[in-house]
Simulated scan of single mutants.
Amino acid sequence: MPPSLFVEAARLAGVVAFGEQAEFGCGRGAGNCERHPAMRLLADWWTATAPQELRGAAFAAPFAYSDGQYLVAAGYKPSILDQVVKAITRKPTKA
């Protein structure tokens, strides 16, 4: 991910409200947080650049690097996240 994209997502997270009753708040119904401009920026980038079989992001999950491995920091680990970790950590192949 380009650092500038992450910086812009962080900026949007700081200026566009996402509290319980905000337009993009979790308290306003299922899937509402996924519409937040910061989340859309990250999810849209992933959907445009991810391996074909992993496209279609609706949200982002934070990962932490610890003891040589990536661990999901969101408190859950569905199998799709295992696939994502493999995709983002694999070594590029030479053409």
Rank of each mutant, 00 (worst) to 15 (best):
58 A>W: 12
86 K>L: 07
51 P>G: 14
64 A>P: 01
26 C>R: 04
56 G>P: 15
91 K>G: 01
65 Y>R: 04
24 F>P: 15
59 F>V: 04
8 E>L: 10
17 A>C: 09
23 E>S: 07
45 W>L: 03
94 K>A: 06
88 I>R: 00
78 P>Q: 15
10 A>W: 11
50 A>D: 13
36 H>A: 14
55 R>S: 04
36 H>M: 03
25 G>R: 05
85 V>R: 15
4 S>W: 06
88 I>Y: 00
92 P>T: 07
43 A>P: 14
13 A>G: 15
34 E>S: 13
7 V>P: 10
17 A>H: 07
16 V>K: 06
44 D>P: 08
70 Y>Q: 00
63 F>C: 06
1 M>P: 09
87 A>D: 05
87 A>T: 08
59 F>K: 05
47 T>W: 02
42 L>Q: 05
38 A>H: 13
64 A>Q: 10
17 A>I: 04
37 P>I: 03
91 K>S: 00
84 V>R: 07
37 P>N: 02
60 A>K: 00
14 G>A: 07
88 I>H: 01
13 A>T: 13
59 F>M: 13
80 I>K: 12
44 D>K: 06
9 A>N: 00
94 K>I: 06
34 E>W: 11
88 I>M: 01
38 A>Y: 08
3 P>W: 00
83 Q>W: 03
34 E>R: 03
46 W>G: 02
30 A>Y: 07
14 G>C: 14
95 A>H: 11
81 L>E: 12
37 P>K: 07
42 L>V: 10
70 Y>P: 00
68 G>L: 12
13 A>L: 12
27 G>C: 06
56 G>R: 11
93 T>W: 00
14 G>Q: 07
26 C>W: 07
7 V>C: 10
64 A>N: 03
2 P>Q: 11
20 E>P: 09
6 F>Q: 01
76 Y>E: 15
85 V>N: 14
7 V>S: 11
31 G>Q: 09
31 G>A: 11
15 V>S: 06
18 F>Y: 03
79 S>Y: 14
63 F>N: 04
55 R>H: 01
95 A>E: 13
87 A>P: 05
11 R>T: 12
20 E>R: 02
75 G>H: 10
17 A>Q: 07
22 A>R: 11
